[in-house]
Design a protein around this nucleic acid. Structure first.
Lengths: 98, 98
DNA sequence: TACTCATATGTGTAAATACTCATATGTGTG
DNA sequence: CACACATATGAGTATTTACACATATGAGTA
């Protein structure tokens, strides 16, 4: 039940993940994914952000391993790498509501 | 099991929490708390940060509801507001390791 | 009251970061 | 090949943010 301290590397890498999630538009993009993969154009449409800006944030999310790209012709579909990620974020939200 | 979209306010407030956790020294402070309350001086000692800097970050954590201050004489002890917070962070860490 | 110790805060500064514009890359189709 | 569409990237700018220094507040004690 880990009341263990976190080591340097854990702090470093975990804080990076939180920093990525800490930008509202990125969190919006991520949560807009739900569990299905969606092309960038759909994300642009649903978030109302510019294409450039969506690409900018998708890069950050991708490099942090928080989304996974899948090429399909000229399209790139983005997905959550793992449904558990969504569960954890949901749990955070539920906790935060309290 | 919430594949619901997040509304604007949820995105806004939840991303604030993540942003706070996204700063390495803040995450270090928070995880150094474990489950017991500790005075600022102990946090300064264990993190190696300056007193000013610890106070600076504690304020951010406090305002985000991520730590809870308890006055005791001249000392201020800081605690997690809720043990579940630590569990969720731990779960994030475990997920991220994978 | 005067002094010490614990913590907080105001101001300034350097670094990080989100965003936009313009353009590049890459894919399918005529 | 030429063109249209989907996505990515480089450069520049404005805002945000972490940090240090000096100082303030506030509690305990002589």
């Amino acid at each position: 039940m880990s009341i263990n301290a976190y080591d340097k590397n854990e702090i470093k890498s975990l804080s990076k993940v939180f920093k990525i999630l800490g930008e509202p538009n990125r969190l919006k993009i991520l949560t807009s994914l739900g569990l299905e993969c969606r092309p960038v154009s759909a994300i642009v449409a649903s978030t109302g952000l510019t294409q450039t800006n969506v690409s900018f944030h998708l890069r950050a999310l991708r490099e942090a391993g928080l989304v996974k790209p899948e090429k399909n012709g000229a399209f790139v579909f983005y997905c959550l790498p793992d449904p558990e990620l969504r569960e954890i974020i949901d749990r955070f939200r539920d906790w935060h509501k309290t």
